[in-house]
């Protein structure tokens, strides 16, 4: 029974199923900067610090939402961090991944953000290879190299998946 979770499924479901969808690079600019607010397209991880809500735009950066009024949240800006999928905050420092690296970014002054440290992952691990989605036991949309470089994976509803891990 336990094995079933690790082995490929015997069949792929027809129609809609929750799984991972590859997000392809729209550019290759890895500079980290504050940009104007943009619409949320491929929403990922969420993180709340007081009235500030961070929403990951899978593989592209982090939306900064003023959630002071939950009936009228304000999209205030976008921190462009190519490859970002995961984040946490402490005392005005944002911890976020950029592909395989873990960055500490001082965001106390949004007009003057500074990278404080950058670490390549201690071990080079399979899951940091973005050719496959993070996590097992999920169907996923097979990546198509013709569409460009995969910068991240969004957990969403996909249609007739042909890949699984």
């Amino acid at each position: 029974m336990v094995q079933a979770c690790f082995n490929p499924p015997p069949e792929f479901p027809e129609g809609d199923v929750v799984g991972y969808k590859p997000v392809y690079a729209t550019d290759n600019d890895a500079s980290i900067r504050l940009e104007e607010a943009r619409p949320i397209v491929n929403g990922g991880q969420i993180y709340l610090k007081g009235n500030l809500l961070l929403i990951n735009e899978t593989g592209e950066g982090i939306h900064l939402i003023d959630n002071t009024d939950p009936e009228a949240p304000q999209n205030r800006g976008f921190l462009k961090i190519l490859g970002a999928e995961n984040m946490a905050m402490k005392d005005g420092t944002l911890y976020v991944n950029q592909f395989m690296s873990v960055l500490a970014i001082d965001v106390n002054d949004l007009n003057n953000i500074r990278v404080l440290s950058e670490h390549e992952s201690i071990l080079n691990r399979e899951d940091l290879n973005v050719a496959v989605p993070p996590g097992t036991g999920y169907y996923f949309e097979c990546a198509d190299p013709k569409k460009g470089r995969v910068v991240g994976w969004q957990l969403t509803t996909i249609n007739n998946p042909k890949c699984y891990r």
């Binding site: 991880q45 969420i46 610090k49 009235n51 500030l52 995961n86 946490a88 402490k90 005005g92 993070p134």
Partner: peptide, 16 residues
């Protein structure tokens, strides 16, 4: 916003 201290992630988080 007050940025002191830590915030709250979702239950699917990979950073803590």
């Amino acid at each position: 916003p007050d940025l002191g201290g830590t915030g709250t992630g979702g239950s699917l988080a990979k950073f803590a």
